[in-house]
Nucleic acid binder design. Structure first.
Length: 455
RNA sequence: GUAGUCGUAGCUCAGUUGGUUAGAGCAUCAGAUUGUGAUUCUGAGGGUCGAGGGUUCGAGCCCCUUCGAUUACCCCA
């Protein structure tokens, strides 16, 4: 019976200190979302499995946490359950075994919500959503099985101004959090389509994007090798090499890409998109990166990815892009959208590593009343309630322990003031207030105590 | 899913080729100190050495299995 308790792999408990820091990130992001006129939405932790399956690619499907159906042992269902399990063993999923799953991201549940409610929503619909998601991935640095995403999406508008705003939201949030040298990479899927067209057809699109996405990780030669393995001809690889060799400032890159794929109709459109967002947004951290591809295949236009400052080796701390027909998957066509996501858990790790949390984040109890005995503590209790009704967080030590124990308690809990009310103070209607940081102590009349502590 | 590294007190870690009763610092608790502590002094408690099996006269150390943590690959925030 006494096995050590534990929590599932890749999940975490958050202590008070961590919760406060996380809340600091949440509220920063939430305030910016609200400032940009996004409305909150929350969706269930679990979705019907079929809502999620097939939306994240083959790899993604494997990483969805599936929930076992209840009542599998019921005598009427036992045969079905057996048959369903056989299907699972073959790598398929079976509604006889599982028909619900934990949500994998916030975008697909949002698309499902929009499809269900498109008659009631006012378009363009701007929503933000801050909730945990789950992935059955092997945990490692910056990767958890339960983590929180903060998404903002605009659906029902084709305007590129949305992309500009989202780029500005990224900037606003990261500047406020102190992550000044983050990098916002942008590209357009249309440019990648144009490249694929140039290299023998859009069916090669996935092969090409998967390979070039790895450029900064494995280098040009390895990318070329991979392209060869994926069945591209030498001629085609030379085109891609030229594409990958585009370097320089953002302006220079734009000139080079135009000469390479500007003749393609879709390529031209993609370049215009990137150029517009780059010029219209005042975000100085934008880096136009034509190798950026992003895994999710529902993106159709601008794509974003946020890189953490290089010194922390965290990789992506946010991402997003435009999808022309996400709700089409749920039977409601022609609602285009664009969205971004913040990965709070990684942002937390980055800020921790760079020491960016302000000290004021740890706002704890303001004052501790010492317990100086039976009558004294009963008196102090009344004073404490007065402080509380004035919005001052405080507590009374639970028993009349030795003074140094009470001091130690205050110190450990990071409580800045202790208030001592003994028999003498009760008579004189005042109290001794000691500032633990400075060690200074003052006699304060009980009437003025609220003002004294409010500073 | 594949692979590497690591599991010793509440925490951070020592622990010799395998050799008596497994150690230190910090933390906790108690004591010169029931109205002024966080710096000192004294003492105490605390361990199935992750778990299970094996080799050996003898295992914290070697071997196998298993669980957990962590890192990398794949993929991703």
């Amino acid at each position: 019976m006494s096995t050590k308790p534990s929590i599932p792999q890749g999940t975490r408990d958050f202590s008070a200190e961590v919760v406060r820091k996380r809340n600091y990130i949440f509220s920063t992001i939430r305030n910016v979302f609200e400032l940009y006129s996004f409305q909150p939405l929350e969706t269930p932790a679990m979705e019907n499995l079929e809502t999620l399956m097939g939306k994240y690619g083959e790899e993604g499907d494997k990483l969805i946490f599936k929930i076992l159906n209840n009542g599998l042992d019921h005598e009427n269902k036992i045969e079905k359950a057996r048959a369903g399990f056989e299907k699972v063993l073959e790598g398929k999923s079976s509604s006889d075994i599982t028909e619900r799953a934990l949500k994998y991201d916030l975008t697909i549940p949002f698309a499902r919500y929009v499809a269900m409610n498109h008659g009631k929503l006012t378009f363009p619909f701007r929503r933000y959503q801050i909730q945990p998601v789950w992935r059955a991935d092997r945990p490692q640095k910056g990767r958890y099985r339960e983590f929180t995403q903060c998404d903002a999406d605009v659906v029902g508008s084709l305007s590129l101004l949305n992309e500009v705003e989202l780029a500005n939201i990224y900037h606003e949030v990261f500047v406020q959090l102190g992550i000044k040298n983050y990098e916002l990479k942008i590209n357009s899927r249309k440019i990648l389509v144009a490249l694929a067209e140039l290299c023998g057809g859009t069916d090669k699109m996935t092969d090409i994007t998967v390979a070039i996405d790895k450029l900064d990780k494995i280098g040009l030669e390895k990318v070329k090798e991979e392209l060869q393995q994926r069945g591209l001809s030498n001629e085609q690889i030379i085109i891609i090499e030229n594409y990958l060799n585009i370097t320089g400032s953002n302006e220079e890159k734009l000139i080079q890409i135009k000469s390479l794929i500007g003749s393609s109709e879709i390529g031209k459109k993609g370049i215009e998109e990137v150029e517009f967002v780059f010029q219209q947004s005042k975000n100085t951290n934008i880096d136009i990166d034509f190798t950026l591809a992003r895994g999710l295949n529902y993106y159709t236009g601008i794509i974003f990815e946020v890189k953490a400052p290089a010194e922390v080796k965290m990789g992506s701390i946010g991402g997003g892009g435009r999808y022309d027909d996400l709700t089409g998957l749920f039977g409601v066509p022609d609602i285009p959208g664009v969205g971004i996501s913040f990965g709070v858990d990684r942002i937390y790790d980055v800020m921790e590593e760079l020491n960016l949390f302000p000290s004021g984040v740890q706002v704890s109890t303001k004052a501790l009343f010492f317990n100086m005995g039976e009558a004294e503590s009963r008196f102090a209790f009344g004073i404490m309630q007065q402080l509380r009704s004035n919005g001052i967080s405080c507590e009374l030590y639970h028993e009349a322990s030795k003074i140094n124990k009470q001091f130690t308690y205050a110190e450990k809990k990071n409580i800045p003031f202790v208030i001592i009310i003994g028999s003498k103070e009760m008579e004189e209607k005042n109290c001794a207030v000691k500032n633990l940081a400075t060690g200074q102590q003052e006699i304060v009349s009980l009437e003025k105590l609220v003002d004294y502590l409010k500073n």
